[in-house]
Design a protein around this nucleic acid. Structure first.
Length: 791
DNA sequence: CAGTGAGCGAGCTTCCGCTTGACTT
């Protein structure tokens, strides 16, 4: 008896010792760390690292016949987290699930309850939108149950995406090429790029003449004033522009109307994921992926709030601290507290806007990119809480007599800088916006003389190609994709080869300038570069072929409004007005029929096109998509006759290449003549264009050399350069050990293993013994992990 | 390191959204 009591005692003691009072599960480990501080010692806060369960990895994972029943599994990389969570949950009195308050968060909560075997009646679901003590204690005081309608909306989303992706992709493997993919989001992203490219292809520039004048006069303070002004009228024909300049030469000018209009400019809202990606691209030149990885670092270091958000909302704590910082640093008149409405399509607003955790930290420690991005976030968030700028726009009309045309000069003065003192948003417009000048003081009727008047030819430009960032912006406008997926979408469509980030050097174009000075009109020309592109997304042939195939066979899914339409239905499911499997079933029957129809069609999509006949051989010339990419083909394939093939260049498209451009492609490999007894041959191989000389290959410089036009002289130069750097490559040679110059600086190599040389050591003074010492030190770490190339 | 391009067939590929590490040259 005594023993039993003792045992119970012990068990109770032991139990209470091990048992955690409260276990809170959130999605992100950084968030868990922060929250634990707010909640105190009775709460243990852990993270699920996002979703813990998904549809089966390699199979459809949907039992279509059984009402689209999802087949879930815990992915291999999540099994460890799940087993740990299971243990912790079993040892806790109360489990609180604090995943985000949106569709995905609710589903995560439900999967946790199911997978961890929690009791739904005692498990508490809580949510908060901002990580502040108030928000969290408030959440703890208002727990609720899991909202199954919201979960079902997520299941519908998940199942729809899986059906679309896993039923269409295999059709592409059969009808276009293996390993391709299609999806609700990626296929529309590619479509945006292809549609834009076709607009550009079909664009014909039109030119017109814009007339600008430089006028001088004396104002009533006896000061000489200079005004730059533009004529409102544009002239299509050169003759008309000349005629107008003649009129100008015979006219008198004077100041007409002067209008002064006050205006204001307001700051942009604080960053969301999408706007952060856009501004980091425009102001810092970061790629979308780079922005996210730097932001992740800042988040983990506790510098900024969560970086995957679609909300422009700031917590009241943030509003207050921003206000304090602004008042202290800039003065009361610079402060204006605002809350911005989020109006992006499909926003779920589970988090705050992206902002500094502590507004009083203007700069931080960290690497350069972290500092730059942090400062950008700080400025944007602070500016959003600052006063509007007050401006004054002045427009001065210059009248012409006897002609009834006139010129206008416009200028802007900032009367109060407000938020502009800290930050102003950039635009996607190219060439930059011209600063509006401050206009001199003049009075109506004041006579002016025209110093020079020029008519400059200008061409209209096609719509711009997308950058990574402007594509994200467009996707967000269409409500396609989520903050967590913008960066992955961009990399997927590139990984599939549908699009590529490329440059174009542009072409010269000449412009006519007509100048009127001292009563004489002169005509001259200047050249401008047109079509120059830097780091733009270009659709590639395979992207265009897949796009056309998808539009033909699945027009509904490729519609820009498809996502918006299904989102509306997901909302109805979330509101309990629509049963999720019913929605999927209505979608699926016509969809699956179109899959079968697409499969039953015989033809394959190759993008083939006949360009004409080669005048030299009389053979037909085709272009098409081959197994290894776009090619031009000379002659038909027939038994015993293998046609000639040549790859298209990176900047050519199956759709637009001409016969003469195609014929040039057959000119490789070509001989550049002899150099010291050996032949110089230019060709393109596996690794791009090269010169072959004396049995060795020398790569041409990308973006500098062109294999079709390179001269023997330049080729010889390349060879000499390479031989020179080969010589420099070896700093010291001790037989089995060598000190070499590599891409990342000098290093030591032995047995195909490379070793870093410590900074304080001068590589050219190393002895064999010192090298061995360095190898000894670093050698135990790892063997070379050079992977064997798969053939 | 320095082209392939046909056709057959086995076995593989593929979606979108939540999350962070491993990997390093």
């Amino acid at each position: 008896m005594k023993l039993v009591i003792r045992f119970v005692y012990f068990a109770l003691f032991f139990n209470s010792y091990l048992m955690t009072e409260n276990l809170v599960i959130v999605e992100s480990p950084a968030k868990a760390k922060t929250i634990e501080k707010f909640l105190g010692k009775d709460f243990k806060v852990v993270s699920s690292f996002g979703h813990i369960r998904d549809l089966t990895k390699n199979k459809l994972g949907i039992e279509v016949e059984k009402g689209f029943k999802p087949v879930y599994e815990v992915p291999s990389d999540k099994q460890k987290v799940v087993s740990e969570l299971r243990k912790l949950a079993a040892d806790s009195k109360t489990v609180w699930i604090a995943s985000d308050e949106d569709r995905e968060g609710e589903a995560i909560a439900w999967h946790l309850v199911t997978v961890l075997g929690l009791d739904p009646s005692t498990t508490l679901r809580i949510v908060f939108h901002e990580i502040t003590k108030d928000a969290i204690t408030n959440a703890i005081n208002h727990p609720r149950a899991i909202n199954m309608d919201l979960v079902n909306a997520q299941q519908a989303r998940r199942v729809l995406d899986r059906l679309v992706g896993f039923e269409i992709s295999p059709v592409l493997w059969k009808k276009v090429q293996p390993s391709l993919s299609a999806g609700r989001v990626q296929s529309v992203a590619v479509r945006l790029l292809v549609d834009r490219e076709r607009e550009i292809i079909g664009f014909t520039p039109e030119s017109s003449f814009r007339v600008n004048g430089l006028f001088k006069g004396i104002n009533n303070k006896s000061e000489e004033v200079i005004l730059k002004a533009e004529c409102a009228r544009k002239f299509i024909k050169e003759a008309d522009a000349t005629k107008f300049l003649t009129t100008c030469s015979e006219s008198e000018f004077s100041i007409g109307n002067i209008s002064v209009k006050p205006g204001t400019r307001s700051p942009a809202p604080p960053f969301t994921t999408s706007t952060l990606q856009q501004e980091a691209y425009r102001k810092l030149g970061f790629s979308v992926a780079q922005t996210m990885s730097v932001a992740q670092k800042l988040y983990e270091a506790g510098r900024i709030t969560y970086m995957r958000t679609d909300s422009t909302n700031l917590s009241s704590l943030a509003l207050n601290t921003a206000k304090e910082v602004i008042m202290a640093d800039y003065g009361t008149e610079y402060s204006r507290t605002r809350q911005f409405k989020t109006h992006s399509k499909g926003a779920q607003e589970a988090h705050e806007a992206i902002r500094p955790t502590f507004f009083d930290k203007k700069t931080i420690t960290g690497n350069n990119n972290e500092k730059k991005l942090y400062e950008l976030i700080w400025k944007r968030a602070i500016a959003s809480q600052m006063a509007e700028a007050i401006t004054e726009k002045t427009t001065i009309t210059i009248e012409m007599n006897p002609s009834c045309e006139n010129f206008t000069a416009s200028g802007e003065v900032i009367r109060f800088d407000g938020f502009l003192r800290v930050y102003s948003e950039s635009t996607d417009a190219e060439g930059g916006e011209d600063e509006k000048p401050i206009l001199p003081s003049v009075a109506k009727g004041m006579p002016l003389s025209a110093e020079t008047i020029t008519a400059l030819q200008r061409f209209t430009t096609p719509p711009p190609r997308y950058t990574e960032a402007s594509l994200v912006k467009k996707l967000e406008e269409l409500g396609i994709g989520r903050p967590s997926t913008y960066a992955p979408i961009i990399s997927t469509i590139q990984a599939r080869g549908y699009v590529a980030r490329e440059e174009r050097p542009g072409e010269k174009r000449s412009l006519i300038i007509l100048t009127l000075a001292k009563g004489k009109i002169t005509r001259s020309e200047k050249s401008e570069i047109t079509g120059k592109e830097k780091s733009k997304l270009f659709p590639k042939d395979i992207g265009m072929i897949v796009n056309d195939f998808l539009i033909k066979n699945f027009p509904d899914i490729l519609d820009y409004n498809f996502t918006a339409g299904v989102e509306k239905q997901f909302d109805e499911i979330a509101g309990g007005e629509l049963e999720w499997s019913k929605m999927i079933s209505v979608f699926y029957s016509p969809f699956h029929k179109s899959i079968d129809e697409a499969l039953s069609k015989k033809e394959r999509m190759t993008g083939s096109r006949e360009l004409g006949t080669d005048p030299a051989t009389g053979l037909p010339v085709f272009v098409k998509m081959s197994k290894y990419g776009p090619v031009v083909q000379l002659g038909e394939a027939s038994p015993g006759n293998k046609p000639r093939f040549a790859n298209l260049r990176r900047d050519q498209l199956l759709e637009t290449i001409t016969l003469s451009e195609a014929l040039v492609l057959f000119s490789l490999p070509r001989s550049l003549g002899m150099l010291e007894g050996s032949e110089l041959v230019v060709g393109t191989g596996k690794f791009g264009p090269y010169v072959r000389y004396d049995g060795k290959f020398y790569s041409l410089k990308r973006g500098v050399d062109d294999p079709y036009t390179i001269t023997a002289e330049r080729a010889a130069g390349l060879i000499a350069e390479k031989q020179e750097s080969e010589k420099k490559k070896v700093i010291a040679d001790f037989g089995e050990i060598q000190v070499l110059n590599g891409r990342y600086g000098p290093y030591i190599t032995m047995d195909k293993n490379n070793f870093r040389i410590p900074k304080e050591i001068e590589p050219n003074k190393l002895t064999k013994e010192e090298c061995l010492a360095i190898i000894e030190k670093g050698g135990t770490k790892k063997k070379s992990t050079k992977t064997v190339k798969k053939k």
